[in-house]
Amino acid sequence: MEWSWAFDWAREFYRETGINLTFVYDSFDRDRLARGFMNTVYLSLICLVLSVLIGIAGAWLQGSKLVWTRRIVQGYIQFFRNTPPLVQLYFFFFAVGSLMPTYENRFGMQEPMLDNFTWAVISLSFFAGAFNVEIFRSGIEAVPTSTVEAAESLGYNRLQTYRYIVLPLAFRVCLPALNNNLVNLVKTTTLAYAIAVPEMLYMANQIWSDSVNVPETMTFLLFAYVFLVGLLVWAMHSWERAMRLPGYGR
């Protein structure tokens, strides 16, 4: 394989310096790290999609004529906005999770219906979704009726007005806040460690426990996160710049 030089180099490096990069040369540790990374990406992506859906649904429900519908959405936002995400995670996993029915697996053991990963997805999606509700709502409210009128006077029907004018404008207004939320979400996925979801932090923890190379793995993990989040922030900011309304704002 063409990567073998890197593995050899890591082994040599260990012999000479004592710095043990098992996650480079050891295929077992390497796989674990890769799996952790994939799980972090996977978790972030699923939560991103679900939180956007929750945001759209919530923003729609907030426009409801029923007082109680609006109150429930408001209560939902308030809960997730004002409590630590760790508490939310524990709340879902331990409190709600204990109320869920169990089923018998093929070894005759009782197993919960939803696994840790699913609970992390649910908890983090609701967490990020709460912010999206507020963001989407303000985004739609930001488009003045006079702009809608202008579109109508040009013959746009309701659907076309939304598709070509209101939503593109609202999206641009929302984008910076949405990006903050996304970056925050990716950072918050590390909390899934607390309920033993095999994401990157959890896998790294296993590697340094088994291979006793805490400083090496730890440092690598820190830099890996900083690099990944930095990349995301950079990409999002470039996107924002491209989507900026020319002539407005900075």
Binding site: A151, E152, G155, L245
Partner: peptide, 19 residues
């Protein structure tokens, strides 16, 4: 649509599409 093809309107606040 047919009406608005016949009638063009210009607003006080221009209402251009800023994007």
């Amino acid at each position: 649509l047919a009406l608005r093809r016949k009638v063009g309107m210009v607003f006080q606040q221009y209402n251009l599409f800023p994007h």
